Measured scan of single mutants.
Amino acid sequence: MASQGTKRSYEQMETDGERQNATEIRASVGKMIDGIGRFYIQMCTELKLSDYEGRLIQNSLTIERMVLSAFDERRNKYLEEHPSAGKDPKKTGGPIYKRVDRKWMRELVLYDKEEIRRIWRQANNGDDATAGLTHMMIWHSNLNDTTYQRTRALVRTGMDPRMCSLMQGSTLPRRSGAAGAAVKGVGTMVMELIRMIKRGINDRNFWRGENGRKTRSAYERMCNILKGKFQTAAQRAMMDQVRESRNPGNAEIEDLIFLARSALILRGSVAHKSCLPACVYGPAVASGYDFEKEGYSLVGIDPFKLLQNSQVYSLIRPNENPAHKSQLVWMACNSAAFEDLRVLSFIRGTKVSPRGKLSTRGVQIASNENMDAMESSTLELRSRYWAIRTRSGGNTNQQRASAGQISVQPAFSVQRNLPFDKPTIMAAFTGNTEGRTSDMRAEIIRMMEGAKPEEMSFQGRGVFELSDERAANPIVPSFDMSNEGSYFFGDNAEEYDN
């Protein structure tokens, strides 16, 4: 993207840094990872977990959730003011799984939030270390993106479920800051804005008074975040219109849905970061690795190297396929839920299948599930090659597409044709070009129609051997075009429920 120079890199967003050079960025990201790792080690000690239990991804998720809940100030305040039966607002906890007599047992633990905050700050040299908290939120978000298709949420806001490739980060909490905003897809931002506008339509006082002023500035800020994701002048001009509207209503909703559809071809720039579970960072720190000293990046080879040398386990339900569970977590670790499966298959070195073909449910185990038949197995999170994460949407291309997802959002900077089903997408653009945004709409449609099938995206960008740390010898991959490109292809993934 041309304006790259004016933006802070995501590592800076990730670490609240002012302008830093590459070495400083690597050190501050490393410091953040160190903090998460030290916190995780301490929690495993508190909970008396064995090494194996500490490497269980379900335990990692519970521990991450506990610290996120302990620092969720708004919710904590709300819980104190609106006490609900049987919930102690000062405590947080969740299921911890232990191996007892050759069987997995679930144990519900409860801790004072104050105590968890103390352990977290102690692991982070006394700081609140917001960057580390956001990092864990993005890992949870990436896992949700890989596990669930947001059909219901899309339909509720009037969008087409086939636009799911635009929904990265749709389950990120509001408090995820600049680093969170960077990884949100165009569809996620559109959905947040539509929800806001709908509230304004239904509630006369939404934009009024002292609160209304705050609401208005939040609305304009979200519009600017979305505008910054678009790469064409016409899309940005249309966002200006939406932002400046005196009284946002149905016309703005129409414009936003139009823009979301246009992003299936004229893709937005959305950041991709490899955020790993805390149970990967903990053992690495415990083994003596100093992330701050060595430096770390979320968008280069580092996460690949770390996963190459990590042992992570997962509980497996009786009829689940461990290899499929591994694929789910591998995609989440690489922030690749909406990437082209052919690119992923090449990088991973084994075939990556669409969601609907995987015999696996989510990673988390519900409290009512029976533990008797639970097994555990090693997650295979290694890769054959590594590639640089991208934040450009890439230019655009036609490809055989599917009944489910009709476009992709690249996660890796790797040369390819970008699949999208042009006739299906263009069919949504018939007729409606009147109104105050008509010239911009016409211009956007013209650009979409001009998108050429034979153009290559990320020209000359390749993948790298894991021994090639400096990215000196790019390998331009070859793809098996007979395979499906979309992950949520004609899909039956479970729906995400809060």
Rank of each mutant, 00 (worst) to 15 (best):
C164P: 07
P453L: 10
E244K: 10
I406Y: 10
P318T: 05
D439W: 00
I425K: 01
L110I: 13
Q241F: 14
T396L: 13
I194D: 14
I116Q: 03
A263C: 14
E484P: 15
G288A: 13
G212C: 09
F420G: 01
R361Y: 06
F258A: 08
Q311G: 07
T378I: 11
K293D: 04
A427Q: 12
K98Y: 03
E46S: 05
E192L: 02
R19M: 08
V363Y: 01
A411K: 00
P89C: 15
E192R: 10
Q415V: 12
A70V: 01
E339Y: 03
T232H: 14
K422Y: 09
Q399C: 10
D468G: 00
D145C: 10
M32H: 05
E107S: 10
A234M: 05
A251T: 06
I265F: 00
W207M: 03
T390H: 09
N124T: 03
S165E: 02
Q149K: 09
S3L: 15
T134F: 08
F464S: 07
T45E: 04
I33E: 09
F230P: 02
V29K: 01
W330Q: 02
R382S: 06
R236K: 15
E320R: 09
K198A: 08
Q12P: 00
D203A: 09
E449T: 14
G17R: 07
L256K: 03
N319H: 15
R55P: 12
M222E: 08
N370R: 10
Y313Q: 14
Y10Q: 09
I406Q: 11
K293G: 13
D112G: 09
Q399Y: 03
S84P: 03
E18K: 05
L49D: 03
W207P: 02
Y296S: 12
E53I: 05
G94F: 03
I253T: 13
S274Y: 05
H135M: 14
I475Q: 01
D72Y: 06
Y385W: 09
R213Q: 10
R267D: 02
A427F: 01
M426Q: 12
A263Q: 03
S269D: 11
Y111D: 05
M105I: 11
N76R: 02
S326R: 14
S165A: 15
A178L: 09
R55K: 15
A233S: 00
N250T: 07
V363W: 00
F479M: 01
H272K: 04
W120N: 12
P354I: 09
W330F: 05
G300W: 10
P83G: 10
E114H: 07
N59W: 05
S274V: 03
F39V: 09
A179D: 02
D16C: 04
R150I: 03
A366K: 05
P423M: 07
S28Y: 01
P322A: 13
A263M: 13
C333S: 14
D34T: 07
T378L: 06
R199A: 08
H82E: 00
I116H: 01
L49Y: 15
R317H: 10
G35A: 13
M1I: 07
F412S: 02
G5N: 11
G288K: 10
R174D: 08
L315P: 05
G212F: 10
S176A: 15
K357V: 05
R99A: 08
N21I: 05
A366P: 06
R19C: 10
T390R: 04
G460Q: 06
D128E: 07
L68Q: 12
R261K: 15
L328Y: 06
R65A: 07
K7R: 00
R106C: 10
E369W: 04
Q399M: 00
G228P: 11
A332P: 09
T390C: 12
V299L: 07
G288T: 03
N309P: 01
S478P: 10
L68T: 07
S438Q: 02
S84E: 01
N247K: 09
R117G: 02
S28A: 14
W139A: 06
V299H: 01
G30K: 10
R175T: 04
E454P: 04
E369L: 08
N395T: 12
S69A: 12
R391P: 01
T378K: 14
S407A: 05
N368M: 13
Y97V: 11
E320V: 08
F71V: 11
E449L: 13
G450C: 15
S326Y: 12
N205W: 09
S297P: 08
E254C: 10
S407G: 12
E294H: 13
G268L: 02
L328E: 03
I63E: 01
D340L: 07
C279E: 06
L259D: 03
R221L: 11
F338P: 07
A179C: 12
Q168P: 12
M136Q: 14
P354V: 11
E24Y: 10
N395C: 11
N498D: 00
N211D: 12
D302Y: 05
K31A: 05
E484T: 14
V299A: 05
F258W: 04
H272Y: 03
I225V: 15
K452Y: 12
P173D: 06
D372G: 08
S141L: 03
G450A: 11
V109L: 13
Y313K: 01
S478N: 00
S165P: 12
K214R: 14
R8S: 00
M447D: 00
I253W: 12
Y148P: 11
L108I: 10
N498E: 04
Q122Y: 02
M196K: 05
W104F: 15
H272R: 06
S217V: 14
I63M: 14
R38N: 08
E210D: 14
V155D: 09
G37D: 11
A251Q: 03
M331N: 09
K422E: 04
T134A: 12
A278H: 03
G5C: 14
K98P: 05
E53V: 03
N368V: 13
S274G: 11
N334Y: 11
L79F: 09
V352I: 13
Y52K: 05
K198N: 11
S262Y: 13
R355K: 14
L154I: 15
E114Q: 13
V100E: 09
G212H: 10
E46V: 06
K325D: 06
D51L: 13
R436N: 08
G485E: 01
I119E: 06
P83E: 03
T171G: 10
T92H: 10
R361A: 03
G209V: 11
M136W: 01
F206H: 12
S3V: 02
F230Y: 07
F346W: 11
Q12T: 09
M105Y: 11
D72M: 12
A373N: 15
R26C: 01
P453R: 15
V329C: 12
T146A: 15
I425D: 07
F304E: 08
K77V: 07
S402A: 13
V408E: 10
Y487C: 06
Q308R: 00
N59K: 13
E244H: 01
E115L: 08
Q409R: 00
Q58S: 10
A131G: 08
N334E: 10
T134H: 02
P161S: 15
C164D: 01
Q364F: 15
A237H: 14
Y487I: 10
R19Y: 08
G86R: 13
L358P: 05
D101N: 13
A472C: 03
L298P: 05
P354C: 13
K77E: 02
N397P: 01
A336Y: 00
Q415E: 00
R65T: 10
V329W: 13
V109E: 13
R342D: 03
I201G: 03
Q4G: 02
Q398A: 09
K422L: 12
A278M: 12
D112V: 09
A323S: 13
D51A: 12
T390Q: 02
K357E: 14
D112P: 08
S407D: 06
F291W: 13
L256G: 13
G158E: 04
R355A: 09
G200N: 07
S262L: 01
T378P: 10
I388F: 01
Q409G: 06
D128Y: 13
V476R: 03
E14G: 02
F479A: 12
D497N: 13
G282D: 11
V183G: 05
G349L: 10
E465A: 01
T424A: 14
T23F: 11
T171R: 04
Y385H: 05
T23M: 03
D421V: 14
M1Q: 10
R150E: 12
A271R: 10
E80M: 08
E494P: 11
M136Y: 06
E252M: 07
K422D: 05
F71H: 09
F230L: 15
R175W: 10
R342P: 08
T430Y: 03
V109D: 04
Q12W: 05
D88E: 08
K452N: 14
F304I: 14
A366Q: 05
F230Q: 07
L298Q: 08
L418P: 04
R102E: 03
E115M: 10
R195I: 05
N498R: 15
D290C: 10
N492V: 04
Y111V: 08
R204D: 09
E73P: 00
S262H: 07
F291T: 01
M238C: 08
N334Q: 08
H135L: 03
